[in-house]
Simulated scan of single mutants.
Amino acid sequence: MSVSHPIAAKIIALIQQERMPVGTHLGAQKLADRLQVSRSPVNEALKAMLESGIVTRAENRGYFLAVDLSDSALDAELMAQLSGQDVLEQVYFDIADDLLRGDLPLQCTESLLRSRYKLTGAQLQILLARIANEGWAARTPGYGWAFSSMITTPDSLLQSYRLRLALEPAALLEPGFSISQATIDRCRAAEMHLLEGGIETDTADQLHDRGVRFHESLIEASGNPFFIETIQRVNKVRRLLSYRSMRNRVRYLEHCEQHLEILALLERGENEQASNALRRHLQSTLKNLGNIRTLLSARNAQEADQA
């Protein structure tokens, strides 16, 4: 068996912790909730586990555990591969860094990527599948890939946040808005985890997924599929733009406090006040985008010099 995905190791650890027997149904949303990430990386991990034979998939039923993953039964080779998950995670961010700096062309071959980042063919395919699923790369004829130029421009970054500023507060005022206590409790627990040390210890990917899950949970509660689909599409592509700001983690203390305020207002049914609080939260985020805008402007200037 072989599997290379940053979330797969966490899913396997959870399976071991819960002592799940062969045949257990592995629901993507349930796993996402337990791991405090969005469904997208969980689905990608399950696909990687399917290719490795760890899980099976039944049409219209989902994924099921196919092998015994108890400590005594777990394949030593698989464990060795799982211990190297940080390699692919680091390369993911290296590619994003290189794109944002202009060090990687927006169109390149798989051979170039494999050589530049010292990946095996299988590792590269898993990495590119993740990036394509997030919406910032697409395959070109042959063995080439094209990265989106839209999300490496300053205006696109600001426009994506202005779109969220227009839609997200409005979603809390939808007539069909209904958020469960379980959702509020899950979101609050995620914020408390950060306040209790997670701000310093979580990876940039975990911080991003926590934020995405918070905001998508509120949008999903609106019951409006148009709101949900739009925000999910924006969230897929904004990872590349937003994660760089995570290097300054001081602001996450303020973010957590703002998120907790919004949850408390929703818990009391004060949706209008919660909508206003969410608007202030997004406006404060917009003010902190100067560094990323400067970085993206630098790339544009570099490309103009090379033209």
Rank of each mutant, 00 (worst) to 15 (best):
L127P: 02
A221V: 08
N291K: 11
L260Q: 11
Q36K: 12
P141C: 05
D71R: 15
Q159A: 15
N288K: 15
L158N: 07
R101V: 03
L263H: 05
A274I: 08
L172K: 09
G223Y: 03
L296Q: 07
A66T: 00
D202T: 10
E254R: 13
A277D: 02
R268I: 00
L31S: 11
L158V: 13
R164S: 06
A190C: 03
A76K: 14
L263D: 02
A48N: 11
H215T: 15
L253N: 13
L99H: 00
G198Q: 05
N248F: 12
L194Q: 08
R164Q: 12
S52K: 08
L31V: 09
I179Q: 04
L127C: 03
E174Y: 08
L69F: 09
G27S: 15
S160H: 06
L88F: 02
K118M: 09
S2C: 02
R39S: 10
Y92S: 12
I131T: 02
K30V: 14
N271W: 09
S52D: 12
R61S: 13
M79I: 09
H193S: 09
Q29T: 15
Q306I: 10
A132D: 10
A171V: 03
E229H: 14
Q16G: 15
E51A: 15
R280I: 00
C108N: 06
A73H: 13
V3L: 10
R186V: 01
Y143F: 10
M192G: 00
E168M: 13
I95D: 04
P105D: 04
H215G: 09
Y143C: 04
N133K: 14
T109R: 07
A170S: 11
L35K: 06
G223H: 05
L128E: 02
M79E: 15
V55K: 08
Y161I: 01
I199S: 04
R139F: 01
L218A: 06
P105N: 02
Q16L: 03
S4N: 12
L266C: 06
Q206I: 10
D205P: 00
A301Y: 07
S4W: 07
D305F: 11
Y143D: 14
E134Y: 15
Q107P: 00
S111Y: 09
P154Y: 06
R139Q: 11
R213K: 10
V234Q: 07
Q90D: 10
G53Q: 04
S178F: 13
H259R: 15
G121H: 09
A9N: 02
I228N: 08
D103H: 12
R249W: 02
D202E: 14
N133E: 12
C256K: 05
Q125I: 07
A166S: 11
L124T: 06
D305H: 11
P21N: 07
N291Y: 08
R61C: 03
L172D: 04
R239G: 00
